[in-house]
Design a protein around this nucleic acid. Structure first.
Length: 161
DNA sequence: TTTCTAACA
DNA sequence: TGTTAGCA
């Protein structure tokens, strides 16, 4: 298998002049923008669905893609009947080693690759880390949010069907 | 203004 | 699931 996840992601992720991953607003402003409470947004983070930026002082900061991620979570809850735990488990099934092209040895010893309950970014944060990669910029974390609608079509398309 | 917890709809 | 209140 040799899927071009980076290009796929480039086509789906929100575009714009601004860096989509740069922290731009605090949680209070984000709450107003999304019409949710700041507690609800913190709950998403506590569950493991989103990794917010933190300021030096420890306050959460959100980027454009975080807002898009919140929109997707809302869609999955309201339209698809999932709950927060369900979304987490769905994302836990992403084959992260395919995205990261881990070698056999790395894959064998990786706790995230064996865990079907929690996404790799949750597992590896409480464990060691993924070769020092920032999960926020990782394709697994980012792709996960966008794949839920058409992961199958991606796979079919890449197999030339 | 932010953090977190807990009660409650 | 999400809001609100109370607190530091």
């Amino acid at each position: 298998m040799d899927y071009d996840f980076k290009n796929w992601l480039k086509d789906r992720a929100p575009k714009g002049r601004l860096d989509q991953l740069a922290p731009v607003i605090g949680i209070s402003a984000a709450a107003k923008l999304t019409k949710l409470s700041d507690s609800a947004l913190r709950k998403y983070e506590a569950t493991g669905l989103i990794i917010y930026h933190r300021t030096a002082g420890g306050s959460r900061m959100l980027c454009i893609e975080d807002l898009e991620r919140i929109r997707i979570i809302q869609h999955l809850i309201k339209k698809k009947g999932l709950n927060l735990e369900g979304i987490l488990r769905l994302w836990a099934l992403l084959p992260c080693w395919e995205f990261r092209k881990c070698d056999e040895q790395t894959l064998e010893s990786c706790p995230a690759a064996k865990d079907s309950d929690r996404p790799c970014w949750v597992v590896l944060r409480e464990a060691k880390g993924c070769e020092g990669v920032d999960c926020r910029t990782c394709e697994v974390y980012r792709f996960g949010a966008y794949c839920t609608e058409d992961l199958k079509s991606l796979v079919h398309g890449l197999q030339g069907r």
